[in-house]
Design a protein around this nucleic acid. Structure first.
Length: 548
RNA sequence: GCGCUUGUGGCUCAAUGGAUAGAGCGCUGGCCUCCGGAGCCAGUUGUUGGGGGUUCGAGUCCCUCCAAGCGCGCCA
C-alpha cells in the first residue's frame, strides 16, 4: 500500500519538475510515514515542505494531492497548513488488514527484509567470576529481544556469549577460591586485595571440603581457577535459562588464544602499518582512528592485553561469515569502542558493520532507598534473586521499558506488587481478557473459526473499532523500524497503547451481542488484537498468559 | 581536566525534526443483576535543567553553561 502511494507521489513530483516548478533535484526517497494522530489520516507526507520551489508548499501539496486521488483504497486526501498531505485509507482496506492478521497469525509482522543476511549479536559476556547481576539481566533481556526482532525481519541471527575464561581476573578468582578453601579448613588465608570477596566462593569452598577434605591443597593455582570458573559458568547458564535467554554459541577466549587467530590478526595489523614497538611492547596506532592515545596490544612481558584477543575475536566473527555485528556493552566499555572499532577498520572492515549498543546501568531501589552494588566486594542483588522476587516477565518489562542508553531506576517494591499499581501486567491482562472472551463465545456456541467474510466485517463502524484496526495496520511497520533502529522500547509502548484502547473498547461496547454478524465481526477484531499482543510480547520475551 | 550518556508534571517513563508534549503511578470523584474491576470514565498536575542559534517547524539538531551517572591502565 505504501509503495503504491509512494509511486504516485513520485509521479506527481516528476510532473512538477516537468513544469519547472522545482529549484532542487528530485529527492531520492519520498518520505511517507504513519500519521501521529487519527485526525491527520493514516499516512502522512511532508514532501511538499521539503521541496524547494518558487511556489508555496501549500500550492505544491495541493498539486501532489491531486495525483493521489487516483489510487485505489484511498478514501480522501487532505492538505493542511503548512503543507502536510494527509492520506485517509478506505475502511475496506482496514478490513483487509484484519483478515491478513487472522490469516497469518503468529507470522503477522514478520518480513523477509533481511534476506537471510547473517548477523551476530553478542551480549552479556560476563566474566565467569561471579553471579550475573541485574545489569547483566538488562543486557540479556535487551539482547534477546533485539535478536528476535531481527529474526522477524528476516535476518539469520546468532546469539553469542564471549567467555573471558582466561587472564588475570580468572587468576585472581582462583587465588580467592584457594584462600576460601584454606579458610574453611582452618588454615591461615588471605584473599588478594583486588580479589573476589563474595560469599559464593565460600559456598564452593565448602563443597570442596565436603568432597575432598584437604586433599586439594597440593593442586596448582590453575586448578582452582578452572574449577571456580566452570562452577560459576554453570550457574550463569542456569540463571539465563531461568530468564528464558538462550545463546546459540559460547565462544571461549581460552580456545581463541590457543589458536593462531590472535597472532594472525596482529600480524595483519603490522602489515598494514598500524602496529609498532616501543619500550618493549607492541602498540596499536589507534589514534589514526580517533582514539585519544595509542594502545598496547602485547605487554613487555609478552602477555596480551585485553584488546588483542578481542581484535582476534572480532576478526574471527567476520571470518565465520558475519558481515553485520551487534555488540551490547556496559557503559564502562564506551571508552573502549574507538580502539576496537579502529582496529576493525584497520583490518579493512567497514565501520558500519559493527554496531555497539551501550546498555546503561540499572539502579535498584527499594522504595526510596538506593541499593548499591559491586561484584568484587560481593555486594549486589543477583539476577537470580531479582527473578525470584518479581518473576521473569515483570523483570523483562522493567528492563525494556526504558531505552537502552538511559539509566534505569528499578523499583523493587513496585515490581513486586501484584496489583493494578504494577504496570507490567497491563498488556498481559488485555491478552488474557481476550482469551476469556473467546472462551465465553465458544461456550455460547458462537464460532469464529474458518474463513473470514469481509462483508461481515463491515459491521465494524465505531470509531474505536476503526482505531484498533489502524493499530493492526501499523504493527508490521513498527517491527520494520525497530529492526533498523534496534530500539526495543517502542514495541512496548505500542502494545501498551493497543491494550489500553482495547480495554476502553471492551468497557464501552459488548463484544458478544445478539446480532450474529456484528458479534462475529467483533470477535474477529478481538482475536486480531490478541494475535498482535501475543506476537509483540513474544518479540519482547514476555509471556502471553491465557489466564492470570 | 577530557570523553560518553542522561536531564520532560510530585514519582517512573514516552514522543522517525512535524501539527494541541503523551502514558502509568499518586491524588479527587464516579462505573459490574450482563463478555475477567490486575479493568474503565471524569478531574488534577508541564517555562521539556538555564541561555543562545539553525529551521516553515526544535523536547529532538548545533554552541554554551549547570546538574547527575559512567569512563579515562602495559586491568579485564
Amino acid at each position: 500500500m505504501k509503495q503504491k502511494i509512494t509511486l504516485s507521489l513520485e509521479k506527481g513530483i516528476e510532473g512538477l519538475e516537468a513544469k519547472n516548478l522545482l529549484k532542487s533535484p528530485i529527492p531520492k526517497k519520498v518520505p511517507l510515514s504513519l500519521s501521529v494522530a487519527s485526525q491527520f489520516g493514516d499516512l502522512t507526507t511532508n514532501i511538499a515542505l521539503q521541496l524547494k520551489s518558487e511556489k508555496r508548499p501549500m500550492t505544491l501539496a495541493n498539486i501532489l494531492a491531486e495525483s493521489l486521488k487516483e489510487v485505489e483504497l484511498i478514501e480522501k486526501v487532505e492538505v493542511r497548513e503548512p503543507g502536510f498531505i494527509n492520506i485517509f485509507l478506505k475502511k475496506e482496506f482496514l478490513y483487509q488488514v484484519l483478515s491478513w492478521v487472522l490469516e497469518k497469525g503468529e507470522k503477522f509482522g514478520s518480513s523477509q527484509a533481511g534476506k537471510g543476511k547473517k548477523i551476530l549479536v553478542e551480549f552479556v559476556s560476563a566474566n565467569p567470576t561471579g553471579p550475573l547481576t541485574i545489569a547483566h539481566g538488562r543486557q540479556a533481556a535487551l539482547g534477546e529481544a533485539i535478536a528476535k526482532i531481527l529474526s522477524a525481519n528476516g535476518y539469520q541471527v546468532t546469539k553469542e556469549y564471549y567467555l573471558n575464561d582466561v587472564g588475570s581476573q580468572i587468576d585472581l578468582l582462583g587465588e580467592s577460591l584457594l584462600a576460601r578453601y584454606r579458610e574453611i579448613l582452618g588454615l591461615p588465608f588471605s584473599i588478594p586485595a583486588d580479589g573476589y570477596f563474595g560469599d559464593y566462593l565460600k559456598t564452593i569452598a565448602r563443597e570442596l571440603k565436603d568432597k575432598y577434605k584437604d586433599k586439594l591443597l597440593a593442586k596448582e593455582k590453575d586448578f582452582f581457577s578452572h574449577l571456580a570458573a566452570n562452577k560459576i559458568l554453570s550457574e550463569i547458564k542456569k540463571d539465563l535459562s531461568d530468564f528464558k535467554v538462550h545463546f546459540d554459541s559460547w565462544f571461549s577466549e581460552e580456545k581463541l588464544r590457543q589458536s593462531s587467530e590472535v597472532k594472525k590478526a596482529l600480524s595483519q595489523l603490522e602489515e598494514k602499518g598500524y602496529l609498532y614497538r616501543r619500550d618493549g611492547a607492541a602498540w596499536f596506532k589507534s589514534t589514526s582512528f580517533g582514539d585519544e592515545k595509542d594502545r598496547v596490544l602485547q605487554k613487555r612481558n609478552g602477555a596480551y592485553t585485553y584488546l588483542a584477543p578481542d581484535i582476534g575475536y572480532h576478526q574471527n566473527k567476520y571470518e565465520r561469515g558475519y558481515h553485520s555485528l551487534i555488540n551490547l556493552f556496559g557503559p564502562d566499555h564506551d571508552g573502549y569502542i574507538p580502539r576496537l572499532k579502529g582496529a576493525l577498520i584497520a583490518l579493512g572492515h567497514p565501520s558500519h558493520s559493527l554496531s555497539i549498543i551501550i546498555v546503561q546501568l540499572t539502579t535498584l531501589y527499594q522504595g526510596k532507598k538506593k541499593l548499591s552494588m559491586s561484584t568484587r566486594k560481593g555486594e549486589f542483588i543477583t539476577l537470580r534473586e531479582l527473578i525470584k522476587e518479581v518473576g521473569a516477565d515483570v523483570a523483562r518489562y522493567f528492563f525494556l521499558s526504558r531505552k537502552s542508553q538511559s539509566h534505569l531506576d528499578f523499583d523493587l517494591e513496585l515490581a513486586k506488587k501484584n496489583s493494578s499499581e504494577n504496570p507490567a501486567y497491563y498488556i498481559q491482562y488485555a491478552h488474557s481478557r481476550i482469551c476469556s472472551i473467546m472462551k465465553f463465545a465458544r461456550e455460547k456456541g458462537i464460532s469464529c473459526e474458518g474463513r473470514i467474510k469481509l462483508s461481515c466485517l463491515s459491521s465494524l463502524k465505531e470509531k474505536e473499532e476503526l482505531n484498533i484496526l489502524r493499530f493492526l495496520f501499523r504493527f508490521p511497520y513498527l517491527i520494520e523500524t525497530s529492526g533498523k533502529t534496534l530500539q526495543v522500547q517502542p514495541i512496548l509502548s505500542f502494545l501498551q497503547e493497543l491494550a489500553g484502547d482495547f480495554h476502553s473498547y471492551y468497557n464501552k461496547f459488548r463484544i458478544v451481542t445478539k446480532t450474529g454478524d456484528l458479534t462475529r465481526a467483533r470477535l474477529w477484531l478481538t482475536k486480531g488484537v490478541g494475535i498482535i499482543l501475543r506476537n509483540g510480547l513474544s518479540l519482547l520475551g514476555i509471556s502471553a498468559p491465557e489466564k492470570m
